[in-house]
Design a protein around this nucleic acid. Structure first.
Length: 337
DNA sequence: AATTGGTCTGTGGTTGGAAA
DNA sequence: TTTCCAACCACAGACCAATT
């Protein structure tokens, strides 16, 4: 009971003092650095504080234990422009569930280098929990979030243990689309995509390789041109793939696919006659393109809903453990006929 | 009856005097 | 010298009486 209370409420200066068998005076001095305190005691207090994610509160901030009925939705500041449709739908799902439970959603933009906005939201205790999206490897924001001990639900993948994750079956989906293309008789398929630091790109690559290996293809036959950081690199990869006799160019996402299509158009390469094209992520543009582009359809709104439901479960102390894998559809269109 | 303004209480954190 | 007690601050919310 007492234990549960502390877990819910977070540590106060009194809790820290009691745990260490010191008075709260000592803890306060250790943290502020002001006043008379022994070096050894100070070190002991600071170590405990770091381990137990204690943060002092300042005036005007929420008192610990007070629920704010806000949740933080963390979006990648750098990727937002290109992936806007995805995040917009995902956000819609999050807001829908949050609103139905009486919560508001606070948008927090973070980049790999700048987590100051996140720091402020944490420091001011503006939210009860976080939904995190688009994790990169060794994500500083996610690490920081875990240190706080606040409930976090991850949209997408991460290798950090103990983080609740909700994601599309990316690997399975990419394996299925690739296998479908292989079943149509294509042997030389090239995969092009962005940075492998993004877990989603890693998963898509894995799915692609899975399918190729299942068909007994060697690395000579299928081509992987991932980790492309500039638009020029994508264009070069397209030329290389064509020169190597690729029958199909697969893009790891919609944004990459747009560049591929642009390059093919300039090269006057006809789709699907001279080369087939497909994407691991769908968009309105790919559907309406001439020819329409084969791609994987995911329901981003459903993903947002699922993530928010998981977080609500964590916040209300109701464990919702059923891991329902979120579905996908392979949309075969003209570009791979 | 509704609004206003004051006091009281409870919270987390800080600080000076005094004890160990 | 180090640590603790107790008073203290700033704030929020509850309560209640005075005022409109």
């Amino acid at each position: 009971m007492e234990q549960q209370k502390r877990e819910r409420k977070g540590y106060t200066i009194d809790d820290v003092a009691r745990e260490l068998g010191v008075s709260k005076t000592t803890v306060s001095r250790a943290i502020s650095g002001k006043g008379r305190i022994g070096a050894a005691t100070r070190k002991r207090v600071l170590e405990f504080v770091r381990e137990h994610h204690y943060r002092p509160h300042t005036m005007g901030e929420a008192l610990p234990g007070e629920k704010k009925y806000n949740i933080g939705l963390i979006l990648p500041g750098s990727y937002v422009a290109d992936e806007l449709p995805f995040f917009q739908r995902c956000m819609g799902g999050v807001c829908e569930v949050a609103a139905s439970r009486g919560y508001e959603v606070v948008i927090v933009l973070v980049t790999e280098r700048d987590v100051s906005q996140l720091e402020r939201v944490i420091a001011a205790r503006k939210v009860d929990g976080f939904i995190f999206s688009q994790s990169v490897k060794d994500d500083p924001a996610l690490e920081r979030l875990r240190e706080t001990g606040m409930p976090v639900v991850m949209v997408g993948s991460t290798d950090l243990p103990g983080v609740v994750q909700v994601d599309h079956a990316n690997r399975d989906a990419c394996r299925e689309l690739t296998a479908t293309l292989l079943a149509k008789g294509m042997r030389r398929i090239a995969l092009v995509g962005r940075e492998l630091e993004y877990w989603v790109n890693q998963r898509r690559l894995e799915g692609f390789v899975d399918a190729c290996r299942q068909q007994g293809l060697t690395e000579e036959e299928y081509m992987v041109r991932m980790d492309l950081r500039t638009d020029l690199q994508i264009e070069n990869a397209v030329e290389e793939a064509l020169a190597a006799g690729a029958e199909c160019i697969l893009s790891s996402d919609e944004e990459v696919c747009r560049h591929v299509l642009g390059k093919l158009k300039r090269l006057r390469v006809s789709i699907p006659e001279q080369v087939r094209v497909a994407s691991f992520y769908d968009s309105a543009l790919l559907q309406q393109y001439t020819p329409s582009i084969t791609s994987l359809q995911f329901n981003a709104r459903e993903l947002g809903r699922a993530a928010c439901q998981r977080l609500m479960g964590e916040l209300e102390g109701v464990p919702t453990e059923e891991e329902v894998p979120l579905g996908y559809q392979v949309a075969l269109r003209e570009s791979t006929q």
